[in-house]
Design a protein around this nucleic acid. Sequence first.
DNA 1: TTCGGTAGCGCC
DNA 2: AAAGGGCGCTACCGAA
Length: 693
Amino acid sequence: MILSLDTETTGLDPWHGSKPFLVTVTLDSGESIVWEWDVDPLTREPKVLREDLLEIKDLIDNCERLILQNSTFDLKMLKTLETEDWSWGEWPWYKIHDTQFSAHMIASCQRRDLTTLALLELGIDVKPFEDAIHAATDKARRITRSKSFVAEQGEWAIAKAGREDMPSAGEKTWKADMWLPRCLILTAPDYVPDWTEGQDPETHPWATILHNYANGDSECTLLIHEKHENYLKSRGLWKIYVERLKILPIVYNMKETGVTLNKTRRDELYGEYAQVTEEIRERCVRIADNPELEDLPVNGRSNALNTVIFDQFKLKSPKTTKTGNPSMDKEVLAYWLDQLEAKDKRRYFIDGLLNYRKRKTAMAYIDGYSRFWNHIKDDWYVLHPSLHPTGTNTLRWSSSNPNEQNISKKQGFNLRYCFGPTPGRCWASLDYENVELRIPAYESGEQELIELFERPDDPPYYGSVHLLNFSTVYPDKWEEAVSNGGYEGAANWIKKNWKDSWYQKCKNGDFAVQYGSVERTGSQWSTADRAFGRKGCQALLKARFAKQEALNQHWIKTANDTGYVSTIPDIEIDPDHGYPLECSKTEWGNISPTIPLNYHVQGTACWVIFRAMVKVQEYLDSINKNKSDDLKWFMVMQVHDELVIDFPIRRGYEIRLREIKRIMESCGDYIKVPLKVGCDIHENNWSEGRGLE
DNA sequence: TTCGGTAGCGCC
DNA sequence: AAAGGGCGCTACCGAA
């Protein structure tokens, strides 16, 4: 028996009280079942019946295959229904399938929500149902908020931003209240406009509106899965899909374990930023002396700020925003700082704005952390960010509520200081060094780069791609450095004398190239050349690394012919196929030449870390066997090319870290690219560490 | 009140 | 035609 399952929930925050109030399954026999539980409007608690759970568990236990859409979400939601004396048991990962994973393999740029998939794969348009529920829910929400209703029924626990039990509430808040129409018609039918006196509330459309719609969700999931399976098998991609599913239990457990942070350190940073920003705000408002500007916008723009900067200060932006408006981002502010006289009051204002924004951004992030955290003990808290392995066009994951992938490590704003191991434990972060540079270098056989990676201790570049590029794009500067510092000392001389000037420019240019800057001819500057601070730099790089450029052209051609690129095939999984990545299109319908190599490399790098995570988890499982939680090793974060491990401090832990490092490096073998992994140990917090010897 | 667009900024 | 890849979050603004 094949089974698909879907839930409707009272929110997106299973760690803060959101629970399923409706479960629907569809069997491959065609039969569908819906269980809907009434929700207490004062507490948002669904009144779940044990006998229903037993029925659902029985189906899950006895099916051969369990199909879900975004499986780790639904499974975690079901898990919240466990009680002290009842549990689902271990989830049967070996039989779980996920339509988001198959959808990503088929068309990684397409939306993967159920509505889109149903329309695309089945031609079923569920939008009208959704709209009907949206309308009913909104109406019901409005009714329960009305003064007369509150006076009679009390304040119902409607979803809204600011509620502690639903920190993610905001934009699509109504979705968390889909239980409401039924609840309202059953509890207080006389408030529902089209209900007539004496009518059985169960016969009103609101009583069954969700029931009817939810039913379709599990039906669609089952049919979509069938279609996807046929498609992937016909393309010879099934093996890769099945391999990818191995990440599901890992994602589930990472979300469950979460990331720990310390309130004292959080308060320390926040207090400091709050004080400084207040001082800056007062000063800037005073300098501007414009009745329109009463406050500084946190980021982005306000009309008042536009007036002050452009009309009053008469500043001209050297750069435009995406839509062609004059830009006012940090680069532009830095440019104005450079242009204006030291004593110009406008300069004080710009300087203030720059510093204000940095701190306000940090404060906004910190606010998010404390909104989502759960208390552990003392001043320790834990976050459970939502992780989405299919959240991007490539194989990168996305992370949200809150995002754990953009935690600042900037000097002076290092929010990683808040994060770290709880007492008695330790963190290690292991990252693939230069992985997105190594992949194209080895794949294309770019000898000079390969030698650089193979002999990281040799002069004159000492393994640094930036320095090798430096010698290419600024030959004159390089010569100057060699004549001053010698062949062996040029690298140090550059870092000592040009750290913030030419060396920094070179690094900026390198990243622009790595992220796909396109060489320009004529009077145009390429993005990379602008970053390098000189015209023609990118052309010099291209000439020196011709094989990589050939690789670039190969993937551009492939993308233009097929719409896809693929990752380097994994010789252990399928030597004939890589993971297919659909290339995004511009608004004119073509594939920008910046895309293909980027997707290929980014995707391959993430394929490697995915393989590594599976292997590392197997190793951790062997360590953790029969251990209590406080003695276990956990994988707690993945930041694209970096893994963070949270483990107990016990003698000899370095040996295990070295083994994890070895496992991660060994995954380069599958794509025939030798990889190096660095390991930092964080005994106190994520911002301070020492290298593993 | 809600919602989408815009801008800006953090990470790799 | 024109090209710096991939994300998520917050604030601001103006239209529905």
